[in-house]
């Protein structure tokens, strides 16, 4: 049990962050709070992917001068660059989602005059 926590503490941390975001999405009544929860959830997923690319004693994924012209580069010396690339895309898509969600929120406030979920359901009826 202790060994499980010590060697995999990163995954447990991301699960806690994911559950905080999930709680905010389900339980909170305010729509901006739901958007904040969505942001926290996406960030925890991105953190999960970035931590997969970690290597012990690995340096940044930028080639050193001594390796520029060598033919056999030791792949264990550098971090895994593939999760970083995928998560660059995910961050930009995250902000696009946030922008559209906030535009819809502004329209809803202009139309119904509130951002609380229960009052909104009453006024729509």
């Amino acid at each position: 049990m202790i060994d499980f926590i010590v060697t995999k503490y990163n995954y447990l941390f991301y699960i806690v962050l994911f559950l905080i975001g999930f709680y905010a999405i389900i339980v909170k009544k305010n729509l901006v709070k739901k958007v904040i929860g969505m942001n926290i959830m996406q960030t925890s997923i991105i953190l999960f992917y970035v931590s997969i690319g970690c290597k012990k004693d690995g340096t940044l994924p930028i080639l050193l001068d001594s390796d520029l012209h060598s033919h056999a580069i030791d792949a264990g010396k550098y971090l895994n660059p593939l999760p970083h690339v995928l998560m660059l895309t995910a961050i930009v898509v995250m902000v696009a989602t946030l922008g559209v969600a906030l535009a819809v929120l502004i329209l809803m406030y202009k139309q119904y005059g509130t951002l609380e979920e229960d009052e909104l359901l009453k006024r729509i009826k």
């Binding site: 942001n39 960030t43 991105i46 970035v50 690319g53 970690c54 690995g58 340096t59 940044l60 994924p61 971090l79 999760p83 970083h84 998560m87 660059l88 961050i91 930009v92 995250m94 902000v95």
Partner: peptide, 13 residues
């Protein structure tokens, strides 16, 4: 070690 992700997050998010 994910420096590119870090500065994209700092500027964009």
């Amino acid at each position: 070690g994910a420096v590119d992700v870090a500065f994209t997050e700092a500027s964009v998010s």
